[in-house]
Design a protein around this nucleic acid. Structure first.
Lengths: 113, 113
DNA sequence: ATGGCGTACCTAGAGTCTCTAGGTAGGTCG
DNA sequence: CGACCTACCTAGAGACTCTAGGTACGCCAT
């Protein structure tokens, strides 16, 4: 519990998963929206292909960090699967934020930035 | 060349490789030393096992970013393979630093830190 | 009416990286 | 003698990311 380590099987691993949790920490979103919102809110710096995001969402749901539910749209618009954080996901996000802060200063120390 | 993107096949990919380049940007080092120095200079926040570092060094050398040479030690002490950045490695480090800065602000934007 | 683009979901497979769990070989210390 | 340190190494499993598609529908311009 007092492990202050990140390099192990932490970041640079499920890093993108953490970013998705970060977005979902704000509000419910669906996959296609996450792709766009990630691109938008990072000004294009992070632009994940759908082939990365959809499997990541499946993993996060499988691991109980997010919960998804289908929403039928009016007319013939394609249905959406909205995701929100579970309680476990909230905890994972909090822990992930701390890992990120630690990793960030560690990497800055090494890279001299 | 004007690509301002990191999420692609960039960070969270060869992230640890970049950290190794960062260390080698300071001075020549050998594998076992890198493991220790990484742990030391990040105060334990990043503690890569040898099984991660040695293969990473081989990849970096294979890709021409670092060059290694054996140094025999006095007595029966085990020999060391010292690595230094190549010119290409210097460029990769510079590019990697920029990628890191971009990724950092992007992730901060998403994680709200 | 046809091709292009947009919404929204999905997958298989290849490639890459990280970690575990060892192994080699010698040295020191109690 | 056993434990631990320096240094290097590897194979294999597991995990993640990306490419390159596919499905299905709607809208718009030519």
């Amino acid at each position: 519990m007092s492990e202050q380590q990140v390099g192990g099987p932490q970041l640079s691993r499920g890093e993108f998963g953490l970013l998705i949790l970060g977005l979902l920490g704000r509000r419910e979103m669906y996959g296609y929206e996450i792709v766009a919102e990630l691109r938008r809110s990072t000004e294009g710096a992070i632009d994940l292909p759908e082939g990365t995001v959809y499997p990541a969402l499946r993993r996060l749901e499988r691991d109980g960090l997010i919960g998804g539910h289908w929403v039928e749209m009016a007319g013939n618009a394609p249905r959406r699967r909205y995701y929100r954080l579970t309680q476990q996901g909230e905890k994972a996000l909090a822990a992930g934020r701390e890992d990120w802060l630690r990793f960030k200063s560690a990497a800055d120390a090494v890279l001299g930035s």
